[in-house]
Simulated scan of single mutants.
Amino acid sequence: MFTEKLLKQIDFIKEIDKVKYIQRKTRLFNSNRHENDAEHSWHLALMAIVLSEHSNEAIDILKVIKMVLIHDIVEIDAGDTFIYDTQKDHQNTKDERLAANRIFGMLPEEQSKEFIMIWEEFEAGETKEAKFAKAMDRLEPLLQNSSNNGGTWEEYGVKYEKVYEKKSVIKEGSNVIWSYAEKLIDDSVESGILKK
């Protein structure tokens, strides 16, 4: 009655509901509640649409939206790695690769290949779309932490140098947004919510 393709797509849709249960370290704006991966990805997609005019280069916004919506799906299996974790590298891991193959592999072959390619492109961070998508991914927690009196910076003792290092990726996607982010980091130091 229903095609195998449709049933695979429905199974994938059911599976990715698990993204809603992956808790991140950052909290919602002006809140004590932790954000989940689904909320994070949705927020990045809207940020990309709203801020796309500030990209360093003309971008395919649909591709950026796809990147930010699927980039953390692998955390269903691999879990969330805190960007400031000192024990585990935040770079693409073997666990994330296995997760990408399993989860995106649930889709029909053509969609599976597309999703894996988009995920790989985001992880590599080399194309103009990936650079802008990563800029959004680094900007959102900066905005959250500054709205929460230091948030995870305070909670985990993260210092200015580490924040600056991790956030400087923003300039690869947008010099304009990086200027804003850099000022926000400096203002956070000046106000005492980010320690040097």
Results as ranks from 00 to 15, higher is better:
residue 104 F to C: 11
residue 142 L to N: 05
residue 194 L to K: 05
residue 14 K to S: 10
residue 121 E to Q: 13
residue 41 S to H: 07
residue 176 V to N: 12
residue 43 H to G: 02
residue 144 Q to T: 06
residue 57 E to C: 13
residue 185 I to C: 01
residue 45 A to V: 10
residue 72 D to N: 15
residue 115 F to Y: 15
residue 150 G to T: 03
residue 77 D to I: 00
residue 152 T to H: 08
residue 65 I to T: 11
residue 22 I to K: 09
residue 130 A to V: 11
residue 1 M to D: 11
residue 126 E to P: 00
residue 13 I to T: 09
residue 16 I to A: 13
residue 109 E to L: 12
residue 89 D to A: 11
residue 99 A to H: 03
residue 75 E to S: 13
residue 152 T to W: 01
residue 138 R to D: 00
residue 63 K to L: 14
residue 191 S to I: 02
residue 80 D to W: 03
residue 109 E to C: 01
residue 36 N to H: 13
residue 114 E to V: 02
residue 90 H to D: 05
residue 41 S to E: 02
residue 61 I to C: 14
residue 158 V to P: 09
residue 17 D to T: 13
residue 139 L to A: 05
residue 89 D to I: 06
residue 171 K to V: 04
residue 73 I to P: 04
residue 161 E to P: 03
residue 157 G to R: 05
residue 172 E to I: 01
residue 150 G to L: 03
residue 101 N to D: 15
residue 68 V to E: 13
residue 86 T to F: 01
residue 125 G to V: 14
residue 109 E to G: 08
residue 64 V to Y: 12
residue 174 S to P: 07
residue 195 K to S: 01
residue 127 T to M: 09
residue 121 E to C: 03
residue 113 K to D: 13
residue 97 R to S: 10
residue 9 Q to C: 09
residue 130 A to Y: 08
residue 185 I to Y: 05
residue 143 L to C: 06
residue 165 E to F: 08
